[in-house]
Each structure stands twice: as structure tokens, then as C-alpha cells.
Simulated assay, not measured.
Amino acid sequence: MHSRHRLLLCTCPDPETAQALAERLVDERLAACVNILPGIRSVYRWEDAVQQDSETLLLVKTGAERVSELIERLRELHPYEVPEIIALPITEGLSDYLSWVDACTSS
């Protein structure tokens, strides 16, 4: 299965960081749209201890050809030492919307 579009998930420490990252990704045409979901709770293991934090989740829509560059850019801008950046294929969707994603992320 090959999909031309991706949904990236990325957690952020707070809404302000999430907003700044979202604006930068859209401005640089790495993302067509970024949804910001505040108020998530993350439980994870870090440095051999279970941690819990309030975070903000980014849902980033982009084209498959922009994923590597988008991940690299998020890594540069993100305050976490090891940020959560996960890309999932978008296998189906409204064709008009996906065409819009293509138009917004073409370099």
C-alpha cells in the first residue's frame, strides 16, 4: 500500500510551544494543517522512571514527500531531547481535502 499523504503526531510541553511549532510548519509549507489538542496526559518511561506530564498534541497533515524534511525541522525546533514524532499513512479521505494538502505542501 502506498499513500501520498501522512498524519504526524507530535506532543509538546505546552500550548504556546505547540502554537509556535504549528505556525512555523504551515508557514514553511511543511504542513497543510496542524490541529492543536491541549490537555492530554502522557504517562511514559524516561531515564528509567515512570513519568507523567500534561502535554499538547499536534496532528499534522502533510504529503508523504515532505515527511523527512518535516521530521528534521520538528527535531530542530522542538524543546524535548527526544520528541515524539510519529508518521501514519492516510489511506483514505475526501479527495478535495487531500488535493488541498498537496497544494499547500508543494515546494
Score class of each variant (00 low, 15 high):
residue 84 E to L: 12
residue 94 L to M: 12
residue 106 S to A: 10
residue 43 V to N: 11
residue 55 E to F: 01
residue 3 S to P: 00
residue 69 E to S: 05
residue 44 Y to P: 00
residue 71 I to P: 03
residue 54 S to L: 08
residue 60 V to F: 03
residue 97 Y to M: 08
residue 40 I to E: 04
residue 95 S to K: 14
residue 101 V to W: 07
residue 34 V to N: 04
residue 83 P to G: 13
residue 24 R to F: 12
residue 37 L to C: 09
residue 1 M to Q: 07
residue 38 P to T: 03
residue 12 C to E: 00
residue 47 E to G: 10
residue 90 I to H: 12
residue 33 C to A: 04
residue 83 P to H: 04
residue 89 P to M: 14
residue 36 I to A: 05
residue 104 C to L: 13
residue 27 D to M: 14
residue 66 R to M: 07
residue 43 V to W: 04
residue 104 C to P: 11
residue 4 R to F: 02
residue 68 S to D: 06
residue 72 E to T: 03
residue 23 E to D: 15
residue 40 I to N: 08
residue 27 D to G: 11
residue 90 I to K: 11
residue 73 R to W: 02
residue 5 H to N: 06
residue 68 S to W: 02
residue 84 E to D: 15
residue 28 E to M: 12
residue 41 R to K: 11
residue 16 E to Q: 14
residue 33 C to G: 05
residue 100 W to F: 10
residue 7 L to Y: 02
residue 102 D to M: 14
residue 50 V to Q: 06
residue 12 C to L: 01
residue 41 R to N: 08
residue 30 L to S: 07
residue 63 G to A: 10
residue 105 T to P: 14
residue 103 A to Q: 11
residue 43 V to Y: 04
residue 32 A to E: 07
residue 34 V to S: 04
residue 43 V to A: 08
residue 47 E to R: 14
residue 87 A to F: 03
residue 88 L to F: 14
residue 95 S to F: 08
residue 12 C to Q: 02
residue 20 A to L: 15
residue 35 N to C: 08
residue 46 W to Y: 11
residue 80 Y to E: 06
residue 42 S to R: 05
residue 71 I to N: 04
residue 94 L to Q: 12
residue 20 A to M: 15
residue 19 Q to M: 07
residue 5 H to D: 05
residue 59 L to K: 05
residue 36 I to N: 06
residue 51 Q to K: 15
residue 97 Y to P: 08
residue 68 S to N: 07
residue 50 V to I: 11
residue 68 S to L: 10
residue 100 W to T: 12
residue 67 V to L: 03
residue 19 Q to Y: 01
residue 97 Y to V: 10
residue 9 L to I: 07
residue 105 T to L: 10
residue 7 L to A: 05
residue 32 A to C: 13
residue 85 I to K: 09
residue 35 N to A: 10
residue 28 E to C: 11
residue 46 W to M: 09
residue 11 T to I: 09
residue 25 L to T: 12
residue 106 S to K: 06
residue 68 S to Q: 09
residue 93 G to I: 09
residue 67 V to I: 11
residue 67 V to P: 01
residue 10 C to L: 01
residue 85 I to E: 06
residue 16 E to T: 13
residue 51 Q to D: 03
residue 98 L to N: 07
residue 13 P to G: 10
residue 29 R to S: 06
residue 33 C to H: 06
residue 52 Q to S: 14
residue 20 A to V: 15
residue 20 A to T: 15
residue 102 D to W: 05
residue 80 Y to M: 03
residue 39 G to T: 09
residue 39 G to I: 02
residue 33 C to I: 12
residue 35 N to M: 07
residue 55 E to D: 11
